[in-house]
Amino acid sequence: MDEAKQEELFWKKIEAEEKIEPKDWMPEDYRKNLIRQISQHAHSEVIGMQPEGNWITRAPSLRAKKVLLAKIQDEAGHGLYLYSACETLGVSRDTLIEQLHQQKAKYSSIFNYPVLSWADIGAVGWLVDGAAIVNQVSLQRTSYGPYSRAMVRICKEESFHQRQGYEIITQMANGTAEQREMAQDALNRLWWPSLMMFGPTDKDSPNSAKAMKWKIKRESNDLLRQRFIDKTVPQAEILGLSIPDPDLELQADGSYKFGEINWQEFYDVVQGNGPCNKQRLDHHIKAHNEGAWVREAAIAYGMSKSKETIAA
């Protein structure tokens, strides 16, 4: 089949809401865009293990410790599902990690903010996972089959994450004066970065328009951001915590008007100038390098094993 015909077939499938599968023909740009988005998503899950992992040994109760461990484990798992989805596009995980280390691939800017108190752990679950879920629910309908299937699985598993976070924040908002202060402080610091997680506004997001055409992305950044805000503001009100946005205003249609996001800060962090960018990347590189001899040993052992199998 010639390429024009292949492309026509591709668009027909997109049109008909059919999934594109790994062995199907796809435009090179589509493939590139997918790799960029899925790997960024995978790296985010994995880098996200660091700020939370930082608190496992300090979790204030055995129950809290168990839940946090289980949650971080899920995140590692989600990273894996996503790497696998990305690998079906013909790029190895090794290459993806290399791109991360060379800063050719990005991860969610939210993880470049420090997680400073136990209330932050609550806020991460409530706001960061909350924002991620809004995005992921939408992505279940993405046009690439393996990505869509990974999203379905992830959404199913993530449903407890946000509850875990909200439970912590609730406990603290209803706790001692000091706890309440920590909860408000966490919200103050993490509110705006959570809104930035949805990416630039639609008018400043050329990638996103393309991705929408291909149905890689299903809903626009601004729409998803608005959905998150409308869902989250009442949750804060129930706790008596105040959203750090003086311009926030409930409108007649039930949605919230909100203040201007500091886009300069967003672009700074994306370009590497956030509070924890270097720390996060250094940590990942260090762990990767320290594990090199283990992987080499495992490769050597695996080779001798498969020789045995063939000989038998």
Partner: peptide
């Protein structure tokens, strides 16, 4: 648990946290 995000590769990281979680349950 201190090893979390320090594994030689992602699958092993999951295995370690899994064992850590089991031990915590026992504790």
């Amino acid at each position: 648990a201190e090893r979390c995000s320090n594994g030689p590769f992602l699958e092993e990281d999951i295995a370690m946290t899994n064992i850590s979680l089991d031990l915590l349950g026992g504790a």
